[in-house]
């Protein structure tokens, strides 16, 4: 078998084809973009060998992503739940279809053995599929009619929080990322994720899945870079309504929470676990989806 055209093989061996290598760009507003800053971070494989350079998201990149996410929010949240579900299911379809590419990346770059890589992708597809199904169901399970003691029809429905920033798992290369995105967008939010160099190439592959899944531009924005570097900007940006921080370090998270108070952001610190745990059940949770909703209670008199 010919050597995989992984990013690091810029110079092929004698007699081999000189591969055209991919530039791993970020995914913002439905387009693949480089960092406005021009900065990149080296991405290495499990052995430490250089594989590719990924964009190092700057404050301006974050702001662009927030702009894109906010612009997409009205359209995404107002779509029918059925239609959101159709698009979310399509993500699972496209990931399944492109699994060989993603599996190869998990083996070559992240360093998983092939069985693990296959399990990781299968689980990620299943996770996307699981959350997709919630799109047109969670409102019934989480909301309801309130039996008030007066002649009013009173009901409570979940609505999206708005623009959600997620820092996905550092331990689960794909399932953690898919979970972070899926539970935000299933609830009708638009989201921004930042993925660190270790898993950045997998994330960019997944962004390509998103780009071909009829997900409207701006609904999911994938940045690559250092998440702790973006903490001050995420915390203080008034265009971000909710934050889901998976496996936060204490100091960075405290800073984030302190800054988030200025705009009364909803900040959630969610458990990170080992990749195997993510593959099984971790993150498959209606309670996580619930963290990305607001409750609206509406009253109307009953009479003639």
């Amino acid at each position: 078998m010919a050597k995989r055209t992984k990013g690091s093989k810029r110079i092929a061996g004698r007699g081999e084809r000189v591969a055209v290598v991919k530039t791993f760009k970020m995914f913002v507003g439905g387009a693949f973009v480089r960092s406005e800053s021009g900065h990149t971070l080296p991405c290495t494989d499990a052995s430490g060998a250089h594989v590719a350079n990924v964009a190092r998201a700057s404050r301006k990149d974050l702001r662009d992503a927030v702009g894109a996410a906010r612009g997409a929010l009205g359209g995404w949240s107002k779509r029918s739940a059925f239609n959101r579900g159709q698009i979310a299911f399509r993500i699972a379809e496209m990931l399944e279809d492109r699994r060989s590419m993603v599996e190869a990346r998990l083996v070559d770059v992240v360093g998983l053995d092939p069985d693990d890589a296959a399990a990781e992708v299968s689980s990620a597809v299943d996770r996307a599929f699981w959350y997709a199904g919630w799109c047109d169901k969670f409102a019934q399970v989480l909301g309801g009619v309130n039996p008030v003691a007066s002649p009013y029809f009173d009901f409570t429905l979940p609505e999206p929080v708005g623009v959600v920033f997620a820092a996905p798992s550092r331990r689960s290369p794909l399932v953690g990322l898919v979970t972070a995105i899926a539970c935000a967008i299933a609830a009708g939010n638009t989201c921004i994720v930042v993925v660190e160099p270790k898993h950045a190439l997998v994330a960019v592959d997944f962004a390509e899945v998103l780009a071909t899944s009829d997900v409207p531009g701006g609904v999911v924005n994938v940045l690559t870079g250092h998440r702790d570097e973006l903490v001050p900007h995420v915390g203080s940006h008034y265009g971000i309504d909710g934050v889901a921080w998976y496996g936060a370090a204490d100091a960075a998270f405290a800073t984030l929470e302190r800054l988030a108070a200025d705009s009364v952001k909803r900040v959630h610190r969610l458990d990170d676990r080992g990749a195997a745990s993510w593959r099984r059940e971790h993150g498959k949770s209606l309670a996580w989806l619930e963290r990305h909703v607001e409750w609206k209670t509406a009253w109307h008199p009953i009479g003639t």
Binding site: D154, W295, H300
Partner: peptide
């Protein structure tokens, strides 16, 4: 978080109350 249609300032223990 709370929207009153053709009424205002209604409260009930069974009715969730809170803000966006």
């Amino acid at each position: 978080g709370v929207v009153w249609g053709n009424t205002y300032n209604q409260f009930d223990p069974a009715s969730p109350f809170g803000g966006y």
